[in-house]
């Protein structure tokens, strides 16, 4: 099964860390990427949430506004998709990533119904 590792934190905190810490954290990412090389799907580091736009609807019409969807303290900073045999294994992968300045959510990826149909056809 595929699992999403969603990384949350405050915008800009990583850039404020001393360069040594930044290097250590980046190395942790690289180590994880090396270890799970064959099982990684999409990897994305997102731009700061100030670059985001939000698409919602109001009274039946689509509205596009500036800024991230949630005005929350924590933003989605990036994500990994990893193929793992169990939640436990996905958590092991997440544990290799830095946690000093952010938090992670590990969440199984649901197979889209369309994909399922295509698979059985």
């Amino acid at each position: 099964m595929q699992y999403a590792i969603l990384i949350f934190g405050a915008d800009g905190v990583f850039d404020d860390l001393p360069e040594d810490d930044q290097r250590t954290y980046m190395q942790q990412h690289r180590d994880m990427q090396t270890k799970y090389e064959d099982r990684l799907g999409a990897i994305a580091r997102l731009m700061p949430s100030t670059s985001a736009m939000t698409v919602t609807s109001k009274n039946g019409s689509v509205i596009v506004t500036d800024g991230p969807y949630a005005e929350s303290k924590e933003q989605l900073l990036g994500l990994y998709i990893v193929e793992a045999d169990s939640m436990e294994e996905a958590i092991e992968a997440a544990k290799m990533l830095p946690t000093g300045f952010n938090s992670m959510e590990v969440r199984p990826v649901a197979q889209a119904p369309v994909q399922r149909e295509a698979a059985t056809a």
Binding site: V13, D21, T99, F101, S103
Partner: peptide
Amino acid sequence: MNTGGSAAIAARLRAV
């Protein structure tokens, strides 16, 4: 909760 080193704490304090 996450366990931050003092640099991470300082960065977070700066942000708030």
